[in-house]
Design a binder for these strands. Structure first.
Length: 1000
RNA sequence: GCUCGAGUGGUGGAAUUGGUAGACACGCAAGACUUAAAAUCUUGUGUCCUUUGGGACGUGCGGGUUCAAGUCCCGCCUCGAGUACCA
C-alpha cells in the first residue's frame, strides 16, 4: 500500500460491482423503498461532456446514501433511443438508424461505466426495442379505447360509453370531447359502423382529426408546440409553418385542470411549476355569442373581461375562422382573400417577429351587440389566433392594449368606459376604475362588474361563464421513420386498433428514410410483406413522437422483463412514485407534462394506483465551459519618423496578426484610458507601455525588414501618437492552455491554430503568453469541451464525482474550471494517507477529539445530503480529514465510519479502504453511522463580544453560566473598559450560546 | 413587456432560524525538503490606513426596521432563465 493509485482501484471495484451484481435491485417489501431516477438520456453521437453526468452523480449519491440508510433502492438507467438525429444521419448516409443508435449507446455506456454509477443495468430499457415499444403501443391502444367523463372527472372505457349511446344516446353524456350534435339511442343504433366510429372519434382520448399543426418542411414532419423554440424547430433550427393535416392527437386538455391542481402535490421548483402553470394557461371569463347581421350564424367569443362588454366597438376573427368566407361582402372579398393568403404563408417566426406590425381587413359584415343592439364591424386580423379560444374576440379598445392599437391603426372609435381613466395614449388595463357608459354595470369596478355581467349574460341566454386553457391538444403523429409504429390499420378509411396478441407492430424495412413522392411518411414505402402485422387496406404510416416512450418509462424499470403486462401492478404499488427525479429544466413543458398526463390516465383506468409520477424533482444547473481566448489587437501609431533617424514621413505603424498576452494588453488599455481622462501620466505605467510599444516597433521592423534598430523606445514621443486601437479575440483549444498560459508549441501543431506561425506575438517578460477567458456554453466550436473520460484517467472517477458536486449548488449554473479538480483530488489523497500503510489500525477506544470530529461530521453530512446540498458535504468531509490528519487518528472505528460517510461520493476509494479495514462485504452494504450528540457537548462556549454591533473580542465562559454571571464576567474583562470609553453601557444583550452585544 | 431566479474576495462558493461575513477549495506569494523539477508540507492572502497594538470600510445601489441585517421591509440598478399578440 503506497500511493493512491486511482486507476487500479477504480478498475478493480468496477469489475467487482459488475461481477457481484452489487447494484441489483429486488422487490423486498420488508424494506422501505427509494426510487432515484435520472431523466432519460438520448444517446447522441457526440458522447458525454462533464455537464451531462452532474445530475447522474447527484442521484447516484442519493441512491447510495439511502442504501446505507437501510432503504431498498431502485436506481436504473436506459435510453430514449428513438429520435431525430439518428434518422437525419440515416438519411444522409443510408445507414439504418438502429445501427447508429447502437453504436452511440455503446460509447455512452463506456463513459457512464467509467464514472462508477450504481445503476442496476439488468433493468435497462430502450424505447426503440420492440419488447419495450410493444407496451407503448399497448398504452396508446388503451388511450384510444377511453373517453373522459367530466362527471366522474376521470377517463373511462369507451365500451361503457358505447353502451350508453345504445341505451340513451349522448344527451346526458358530459364528456371532454369535440362539439357533437345530440343523437338518440335509436339514431345511434341505426348508424352504420363508419358513422358510429366517426362519432366515437369525437370522444376518444386519442383521436384522428384535421388540425392546425406546426409543419416543419425541412424535417418533413409535424412538431409539437414544445418542440418549437423562437418560431423554429428546437432540433436543427428550421422554419415552421401552420398547416391543416389529418393527425393523431391526445386529448390532454381533458386533464388541464388536474395537471394544474396536481402541481400542489409535488415537490418541484417554483420556476418549474410556474412554467407548467403558464403552459396550461388557465383563465376565467365568459363565452358570449354575437349575432351576425343578415345571417343565422353567431360568433362565439371568449373574454376574461365580460364587464367591459359595453366597450365593444368591433370584432376580430382569426383569418382562418370558419365564418370569414361566408360573411365577407362582395366589396371586400378580394382584399380579405389576399389577406388570408399572406397570413397563411407566414411562418410562425415571421408572425412572432411581426408583432408590432398591425394588420387586418374589414369584412364588410356587422355583428349585433348583444346588450345594446348596435351594429359593430367585423374585421379579420392575425393577432387573433385560430387555435386559442374560439378564434374570435370582442374588441374593447378602451380596455385592451392590442384592441386599442388595432382601433388606433384603423381609425375605429375608442369610447371610454372607465371613470377617470386617460385612454388617449393607450388602453386602461388595470382593474381599479369604475365603469361608465355601461348601462347596468355603471359605477362598478372590475371584480363586481365581471360577476354581474356574467350573471346577466347567462340570464339573457347570451352565453355563459367559462374557463379557458391555453394548453392545446398534443399532436401525436410524426411523419418520420425512427419512432414507434402505431398499432393501427385502416379499413375503408376507418382506423382500427390491433388485437393485443398482434402487438408489437415492428418497424418495417424501407428502401429510404424519406417521404414518398406523394408526400406520405417513410413507412408508406414499406412493402406489404415488410410489416410483421398487416391488416385491412393499409397500416398507419405515421410514427409516434419522441415523448411517447419517455412518458411511461419510469414504470417499466419496475418490471422491465414482463412479457404479459407493461408493469406488474404489485410491483408498481411497491416502487410507486419516483422519490427523486433529476434532470434539466428544458423538459418543463414537454416530457414532464406528458408523463404526468399518462400517469393520470393509467391511474384512472386502474393500471396503477398513483396519479403523479414524480414526487420530488430537481433541475440540475448547466455546467458552463470556460473558454480560452487569444487577444488580438490592431493598433495604429503615427509619428515614428524619429525611429531610425530616417524620415519616413507620418508613417502609421500597423502590424497584421498581432497577438498580445493579457497583461500587456491591460497595460495598453489602461494607459490609453489615463491619457484620455486624466492627462497626468503615471510614470510606471508609461514605462511599461513604452516597452510594449518598443516591442511592437521591433516587430514591425522585422516585417519591414528594417534591421538597424537598437532601442527605439528611447526616442519615442509617447503622448500623442496613438491613432487607433481595436481588440478582438479568438477561441483557442483549452487543451493547449494551462493556468491561462498558452502552450504555443502544442497549439501550433493543430491545423486549426496554425495561424500562430505567421503571427506576431507579444509575451510577458517571463516569456509566457497569457490568454483571456470567458464563461459560456460548452460547445465544440468554442474549443471548451471537457470530457469526463480524460478527467477519469487523470484524476479518477472519485475525484470527478466529488469535484462536480463541490463546484456549487446542484441547481445553479456554474462554470467548469479544471484547475479546481486538484483540490478534491488532494482531499482524496489525504484521506488515503490517513489510513496507515501497514493497515495497523488503532483498535482501542477513540479519543475525545476524534469522536467530536466524527460526530459533527456525521451530523452535518446527513443533514446536508437530506437537503441536497452536496457541495457543503464535500467541504465538511475535507474539514474532517484535515482534523483527523492533525490528530494523527488511526482509530479503526473512526476511520470505518468516515469511509461510510464518504462512500456515496467517492465509492471506489472507500471500497478499497473498507476492504483494508478488514471488511469482506461491499461498503454499499454498510450501515450509515448514527449521530450521537454526547460527543459534541462542550463545557465552555467562546462568546463573540460586540460593542454596538461590532465584534471586538472573544470571551470563553462556561456553557451553563447564567446571564447575570456572564455580564459580571464581561465587565471584569480587561478589554471591556477600553470599549466603554468611560461611558455607561445602555444595554447588554446576552443570547446564551450565541453572542454578547453591549450598547454604549 | 410579463413571470421566476440571482448579485458576497482575484475565482468557485460558505454562512440552514436575523447573532463572529468570507468556511472549504482554487489561484497567488513566501518558506521547508530537493542538485533540480514534480509531489508533499508550513505560513500568509477582502480592501485601505497603521511602527506594533490596532483602526476604518466592506455582501449590486439608496433608504428603513432592529441591541444586531448578506439574511426582514420599501424603492432602484444589473445579469440570467422562461415566456410572449392567450382575448
Amino acid at each position: 500500500m503506497s500511493e493512491y493509485n486511482h486507476n487500479s482501484i477504480e478498475q478493480k471495484w468496477q469489475k467487482y460491482w459488475s461481477e457481484n451484481k452489487t447494484y441489483k435491485a429486488t422487490e423486498d417489501t420488508t424494506k422501505k423503498k427509494f426510487y432515484a431516477l435520472d431523466m432519460f438520456p438520448y444517446p447522441s453521437g457526440a458522447g458525454l461532456h462533464v455537464g451531462h453526468p452532474l445530475g447522474y452523480i447527484a442521484s447516484d449519491i442519493m441512491a447510495r446514501y439511502k442504501k446505507n440508510k437501510g432503504f431498498n433502492v431502485l436506481h436504473p438507467s436506459g435510453y430514449d433511443s428513438f429520435g431525430l438525429p439518428a434518422e437525419q444521419y440515416a438519411i444522409q448516409t443510408g445507414q439504418h438508424p438502429a445501427i447508429t443508435t447502437d453504436a452511440n449507446i455503446k460509447r455512452y455506456r463506456q463513459q457512464l461505466d467509467k464514472i462508477g454509477f450504481a445503476f442496476d443495468w439488468e433493468r435497462e430499457v430502450r424505447t426503440s426495442n420492440p419488447d419495450y415499444y410493444k407496451w407503448t403501443q399497448w398504452i396508446f391502444k388503451q388511450i384510444f379505447q377511453s373517453w373522459y367523463n367530466n362527471d366522474t372527472d376521470k377517463a373511462e372505457a369507451i365500451d361503457e360509453l358505447i353502451a350508453t349511446f345504445a341505451k340513451e344516446g349522448n344527451a346526458n353524456v358530459n364528456a371532454a370531447c369535440e362539439e357533437t350534435p345530440v343523437f338518440t339511442a335509436e339514431e345511434w343504433n341505426n348508424w352504420d359502423e363508419k358513422t358510429q366510429r366517426q362519432t366515437l372519434m369525437n370522444y376518444r382520448l386519442t383521436y384522428l382529426a384535421d388540425s392546425w399543426v406546426n409543419w416543419c418542411p425541412e424535417l418533413g414532419t409535424v412538431l409539437a408546440n414544445d418542440e418549437i423554440k423562437d418560431g423554429v424547430s428546437e432540433r436543427g433550427g428550421h422554419p415552421v409553418e401552420q398547416k391543416l393535416m389529418r393527425q393523431w392527437s391526445m386529448r390532454i386538455t381533458a386533464y388541464a385542470e388536474r395537471l394544474l391542481q396536481g402541481l400542489d402535490k409535488v415537490d418541484f421548483s417554483d420556476s418549474l411549476k410556474e412554467q407548467q402553470r403558464n403552459w396550461i394557461g388557465k383563465s376565467k371569463g365568459a363565452s358570449v355569442f354575437f349575432d351576425v347581421a343578415g345571417f343565422d350564424d353567431k360568433i362565439e367569443v371568449f373574454t376574461t373581461r365580460p364587464d367591459t362588454i359595453f366597450g365593444v366597438t368591433f370584432m376580430v376573427l382569426a383569418p382562418e375562422h370558419d365564418l370569414v368566407a361566408k360573411i365577407t361582402t362582395d366589396e371586400y372579398k378580394a382584399k380579405v382573400a389576399a389577406y388570408k393568403k399572406t397570413a397563411a404563408a407566414k411562418t410562425e417566426r415571421d408572425r412572432q417577429a411581426d408583432v408590432k406590425n398591425i394588420t387586418g381587413e374589414f369584412t364588410g359584415a356587422y355583428a349585433i351587440h348583444p346588450f345594446s343592439g348596435e351594429k359593430v364591424q367585423i374585421w379579420i386580423g392575425d393577432y387573433v389566433l385560430a387555435t386559442y379560444g374560439t378564434g374570435a374576440v370582442m374588441a374593447v379598445p378602451a380596455g385592451d392594449q392590442r384592441d386599442w392599437d388595432f382601433a388606433n391603426h384603423f381609425n375605429i372609435p375608442i369610447p371610454n368606459i372607465f371613470e377617470g381613466a386617460d385612454i388617449s395614449e393607450g388602453a386602461y388595463t388595470e382593474k381599479g376604475a369604475k365603469l361608465m357608459n355601461s348601462d347596468f354595470l355603471n359605477g362598478l369596478t372590475a371584480k363586481k362588474g365581471m360577476s354581474l355581467a356574467t350573471y346577466e349574460i347567462e340570464k339573457r341566454g347570451l352565453g355563459k361563464g367559462k374557463t379557458n386553457y391555453r394548453l392545446r391538444e398534443a399532436i401525436f403523429s410524426r411523419q418520420r421513420y425512427w419512432g414507434e409504429p402505431f398499432p393501427v390499420y385502416y379499413k375503408n378509411d376507418i382506423p382500427y386498433v390491433l388485437e393485443d396478441n398482434q402487438l408489437p407492430v415492428t418497424l418495417p424495412e424501407v428502401d429510404a428514410y424519406l417521404p414518398t413522392e406523394d408526400g406520405e411518411p417513410p413507412l408508406a414505402r414499406a412493402k406489404k410483406e415488410a410489416w410483421n402485422v398487416f391488416e385491412g387496406d393499409r397500416m398507419e404510416y405515421n410514427t409516434m413522437p419522441g415523448w411517447a416512450g419517455s412518458s411511461w418509462y419510469f414504470l417499466r424499470y419496475m418490471d422491465p422483463k414482463n412479457e404479459k403486462e407493461f408493469v406488474n401492478k404489485e410491483k408498481a404499488d411497491y416502487w410507486n412514485q419516483v422519490d427523486l427525479y433529476i434532470g434539466g429544466s428544458e423538459h418543463a413543458t414537454g416530457h414532464l407534462l406528458y408523463s404526468r398526463f399518462w400517469t393520470k390516465f393509467l391511474c384512472d383506468r386502474g393500471f396503477i394506483n398513483f396519479d403523479e409520477p414524480f414526487k420530488k424533482l430537481i433541475n440540475q444547473g448547466m455546467i458552463l465551459g470556460r473558454s480560452s481566448l487569444i487577444n488580438k489587437i490592431s493598433i495604429q501609431f503615427s509619428g515614428l519618423t524619429k525611429l531610425d533617424g530616417k524620415d519616413e514621413g507620418a508613417t502609421n505603424l500597423h502590424i497584421p496578426n498581432l497577438l498580445i498576452s493579457k497583461r500587456k494588453l491591460e497595460v495598453i488599455t489602461n494607459h490609453i484610458k489615463i491619457l484620455k481622462k486624466e492627462k497626468n501620466i503615471n510614470n510606471e505605467l508609461k514605462n511599461e507601455f513604452l516597452k510594449i510599444k518598443g516591442e511592437m516597433i521591433f516587430l514591425r521592423a522585422k516585417v519591414a525588414k528594417v534591421s538597424n534598430l537598437k532601442t527605439p523606445t528611447d526616442e519615442l514621443d509617447i503622448e500623442a501618437d496613438i491613432l487607433d486601437l481595436q481588440t478582438s479575440s479568438l477561441h483557442i483549444d483549452i487543451n493547449c492552455v494551462e493556468n491561462d498560459i498558452l502552450n504555443i508549441e502544442k497549439a501550433i501543431k493543430d491545423p486549426m491554430f496554425s495561424f500562430l506561425k505567421g503571427s506576431h506575438i507579444i509575451k510577458e517578460e517571463n516569456g509566457d503568453f497569457i490568454c483571456g477567458h470567458e464563461v459560456e456554453k460548452m460547445s465544440k466550436s468554442k474549443y471548451n469541451v471537457q470530457t469526463p473520460d480524460d478527467l477519469c484517467d487523470q484524476y479518477g472517477a472519485d475525484s470527478l464525482r466529488c469535484y462536480e458536486m463541490f463546484l456549487g449548488p446542484l441547481e445553479q449554473a456554474k462554470p467548469w474550471d479544471t484547475q479546481g479538480i486538484s483540490g478534491v483530488h488532494n482531499f482524496l489523497k489525504k484521506l488515503w494517507r490517513l489510513f496507515p500503510e501497514d493497515n495497523q489500525f488503532d483498535e482501542g477506544a477513540p479519543t475525545k477529539d476524534a469522536l467530536k470530529t466524527l460526530h459533527k461530521t456525521i451530523k452535518k453530512v446527513t443533514e446536508d445530503i437530506e437537503r441536497y446540498s452536496f457541495n457543503t458535504v464535500i467541504s465538511t468531509c475535507m474539514i474532517a480529514v484535515n482534523e483527523l490528519g492533525a490528530q494523527k487518528c488511526k482509530n479503526k472505528q473512526i476511520l470505518s465510519d468516515l469511509a461510510v460517510i464518504i462512500s456515496p461520493f467517492a465509492p471506489h476509494i472507500t471500497e478499497e479502504l473498507w476492504e483494508r479495514l478488514g471488511n469482506t462485504e461491499s461498503i454499499t452494504k454498510a450501515t450509515w453511522p448514527a449521530f450521537n450528540e454526547k460527543h459534541l457537548i462542550e463545557s465552555n462556549f467562546s462568546y463573540p463580544v460586540s460593542f454596538n454591533g461590532k465584534m471586538r473580542f472573544m470571551l470563553e465562559l462556561p456553557i451553563d453560566m447564567g446571564k447575570d454571571d456572564i455580564e459580571k464576567a464581561l465587565f471584569a474583562h480587561e478589554k471591556t473598559a477600553g470599549y466603554l470609553d468611560g461611558k455607561d453601557p445602555k444595554k447588554v444583550i446576552v443570547v446564551p450560546k450565541r453572542i454578547i452585544n453591549v450598547v454604549v
